[in-house]
């Protein structure tokens, strides 16, 4: 794994800083609304990590990630609301179903890649959007979705502690996983699939693992998000904008780095919220898009690379 002391120090500092955020709000150093914004950022970060494990590493670009998120969200919402399954059980079951869904997405990846694979995943999302509206609308809530879903927390601080704990666990878990030989093999898969195959490794098994891990994270985050929001609407869940937000968060933060998508998610979410008082209408999305574009043009490897470069220069001078 090649872990060094400064890795532990950096993760320790990050975890401590994130868990101490509510105290900064108590002290009046941050606004009351900050925690709510961070909760949204944490869930977007998990979705971006999930996308990054699959697409950032292996090069199989998914445009249909809400398909997996939706399975997790709908799974637990239906189980808990319609069948009275306790949330402690409905969430793990939903995650398990999502992982099976991940294997379904894997099937086309066994034969196609590149833009064809991206289009097929987009079709998966569209298919899911149509299915939840017409197949058993009594369960899915049809076009209107589901509301009155049990929420796990009340109050911004509780919601934040749950979301940030989940996000940190997911980020750390995926970061450690990507430092194993499995992570290296995934990266190699993205560079040259034939070479990996030629080296004797099973690319099918590697891809299956990547899809399963990605689906696990997507399902977990989707399930917890629906129990945070308390409602679920297919139009918002399977909207093309939600796919773009996830991909932009991963790319602008730094694809293939795990921490990059977290940085990207927080940057995008806070940028939009900071702009809100000054540009309450749709104009803020224009500014948001322009900032993202400029940043991406300045450093295509994302915010992670900018920070890494800055730190290296600092240490170099020291």
């Amino acid at each position: 794994m090649n872990l060094r002391w400064y890795h532990f120090a950096a993760w320790g500092a990050l975890i401590a800083a994130m868990l101490l955020m509510p105290r900064l709000v108590d002290l009046g150093l941050m606004g009351r609304g900050t925690l709510r914004t961070m909760i949204q950022a944490c869930y977007l970060a998990m979705f971006a990590i999930s996308w990054d494990v699959l697409s950032g590493r292996t090069g199989y670009i998914s445009f249909g990630h809400p398909f997996l998120i939706g399975i997790g969200a709908y799974g637990t919402a239906i189980l808990s609301k319609k069948f009275g399954v306790p949330v402690e059980l409905s969430i793990p079951l939903a995650v398990l179903i999502t992982m099976i869904g991940g294997l379904v997405v894997l099937l086309p990846a066994l034969r196609i890649k590149g833009s064809y694979f991206a289009l097929v995943t987009l079709a998966f999302m569209e298919l899911m959007y149509q299915l939840v509206q017409v197949i058993r609308p009594d369960l899915t809530g049809g076009t209107r979705g589901l509301s009155g879903i049990k929420t796990l927390t009340r109050g911004a601080e509780n919601g934040y502690m749950l979301a940030v704990s989940l996000m940190l666990a997911v980020a750390l878990g995926c970061w450690l996983l990507m430092r194993t030989r499995f992570g290296t093999a995934l990266w190699a898969l993205g560079q040259n699939e034939e070479a990996v195959s030629g080296s004797g490794l099973s690319t099918i098994r590697l891809k299956a693992m990547a899809f399963l891990v990605s689906a696990f994270v997507a399902g977990l985050a989707g399930a917890f998000l629906v129990h945070y929001n308390g409602s679920l609407a297919p139009r918002a869940m399977f909207d093309i904008n939600s796919v773009f937000t996830i991909i932009v968060a991963a790319l602008i933060g730094g694809a293939g780095t795990i921490l990059g998508p977290v940085l990207g998610a927080f940057f995008l979410t806070f940028l939009l919220e900071w702009l809100r008082p000054f540009l309450p209408g749709a104009e803020r999305f224009l500014v948001y898009g322009a900032v993202a574009l400029v940043l991406y043009m300045y450093q295509p490897k994302g915010i992670y690379a900018i920070i890494e470069g800055g730190l290296k220069r600092l240490w170099g001078r020291a």
């Binding site: 606004g31 009351r32 609304g33 925690l35 709510r36 914004t37 949204q40 979705g145 911004a156 929001n229 409602s231 609407a233 139009r235 918002a236 939600s242 919220e273 809100r276 008082p277």
Partner: peptide, 14 residues
């Protein structure tokens, strides 16, 4: 819908 939730939170908390 998602923007609506964020908007309500903004009005309530910020």
């Amino acid at each position: 819908v998602t923007e609506g939730i964020k908007a309500y939170e903004y009005l309530a908390e910020t």
